[in-house]
């Protein structure tokens, strides 16, 4: 089994088939929508802050491939409870990792580094993180 097949088998399938965070948070939640016009991948990330400003609720809706769905789900799982700064740092580290930066510490997220060899697929993994980055930085221009 090659690296990409391993990625699919170990991470992507679980999170794309039964994504826990694929939910709409409804009215009042801040949302950012990102689209990749090259392939039609489309994701909206929503969140609500708790009393201390940390991510108390997060969810996404998406149309696209298994990598997009799994990456969105894992992202939500891994940033739930983080404050804005830490979530923003993680988003930047994830995107940097796919641009040949260092692998990040969490093994499930790090496994997405296998997509470095697939320029056309990197965006599938980074699209939800891009939306999160916009939400956390307050810069709502989601470049797609």
């Amino acid at each position: 089994m090659n690296a990409v097949e391993s990625l699919y088998q170990s991470v992507i399938l679980k999170h794309s088939r039964a994504p826990r965070f694929r939910v709409e948070l409804g009215q009042g939640a801040a949302a950012c929508h990102c689209r990749n016009p090259l392939c039609g991948d489309d994701v909206t990330v929503q969140w609500r802050a708790g009393p201390a400003g940390a991510i108390a609720e997060i969810g996404f809706t998406a149309e696209g491939c298994a990598i997009l769905i799994a990456s969105s789900d894992l992202m939500a799982e891994s940033v739930l409870g983080l404050d804005r700064d830490r979530a923003l740092k993680k988003a930047r580290a994830f995107r940097a990792m796919l641009d040949d930066g260092p692998e990040i510490a969490e093994p499930t997220l790090a496994s997405f580094a296998a997509l470095r060899d697939y320029p056309a697929r990197k965006r599938c993994a980074t699209l939800p993180w891009q939306a999160l980055e916009s939400l956390m930085s307050g810069d709502m221009k989601c470049q797609s």
């Binding site: 097949e5 090259l38 392939c39 039609g40 491939c65 298994a66 990598i67 056309a120 697929r121 599938c124």
Partner: peptide, 22 residues
């Protein structure tokens, strides 16, 4: 149950080049 882009990526690793998209 399989998005065309995932199909193309997994076929590619087997040396098979197909197109996926619109």
């Amino acid at each position: 149950g399989a998005h065309p882009h995932d199909i193309a990526t997994l076929l590619d690793r087997q040396g098979i080049a197909v197109r996926a998209g619109h």
